[in-house]
Design a protein around this nucleic acid. Structure first.
Length: 196
DNA sequence: CTCTCGATTAGCT
DNA sequence: GCTAATCGAGAGA
């Protein structure tokens, strides 16, 4: 399944500018081969988290702990963590080694594996299947087992199929749920593709 | 060890 | 609009 486009490789994750990569991932496809089947979705919303100065980032001030360590890896691996004790959130680690940087995938549109996702998201309207960072993981079957996983492997990967959202359809807003970050919470580091 | 709180969601008022 | 759910990371003693 999948592989209908170009699988992103290490160099595609290397951009050291957080907002540039966050914008870049809009229109890319997250593909997941899970024990219960294959599903994929096109990314429609992202947030940038980057650099030791970013007070909203888990790695603020170069804080290296068991959880944040993966953010210091070279771009191209998954950072998955448990939020509010309930929800898993999927990030794409980006940039060079030792500079903690990641892009949070906040929403995708399911483009394959609809029957599987319908089962995983039983009772949920299709438009809400993956509209939110916790929902993305629920729909695509992303779990803590994917944390630290190489994104150019055969389990979870990202494809470029030539979809590039036009600038006029991409909105920038402050990031969600980071009020604790003071002035950094105001930076327009969230990217939303609103297709017309 | 204890305590606090979170890059959210679903369900209810 | 409000809030319970649910638990581990991180900080401090």
């Amino acid at each position: 399944m999948g592989n209908r486009g170009k699988k992103l490789l290490r160099e595609d994750y290397a951009d050291p500018r957080p907002t540039r990569v966050a914008r870049y991932f809009l229109g890319k496809f997250v593909c997941v081969e899970a024990p219960d089947g294959y599903a994929e979705g096109m990314i429609t919303e992202t947030e940038a988290y980057g650099g030791p100065q970013d007070a909203a980032s888990h790695a603020f001030g170069n804080r290296r702990t068991a959880r944040t360590e993966i953010m210091f890896a070279p771009g191209g691996v998954a950072y998955v963590y448990l939020c509010y004790g309930l929800h898993r959130l999927f990030n794409i680690v980006t940039g060079p080694e030792d500079i903690p940087q990641a892009v949070l995938v906040r929403a995708v549109r399911i483009t394959a594996g609809q029957e599987l996702v319908r089962r995983r998201r039983r009772g949920v309207a299709e438009k809400d299947w993956a509209s939110g960072p916790g929902r993305v993981c629920a729909a695509l079957g992303i779990g803590m087992n994917h944390n630290g996983h190489d994104l150019s492997g055969e389990t979870i990967w990202i494809e470029d199929r030539g979809v590039v959202p036009p600038n006029r359809e991409v909105k920038r807003t402050p990031r969600i749920g980071v009020d604790y970050a003071g002035a950094w919470a105001l930076k327009p580091w969230r990217f939303v593709w609103e297709e017309e």
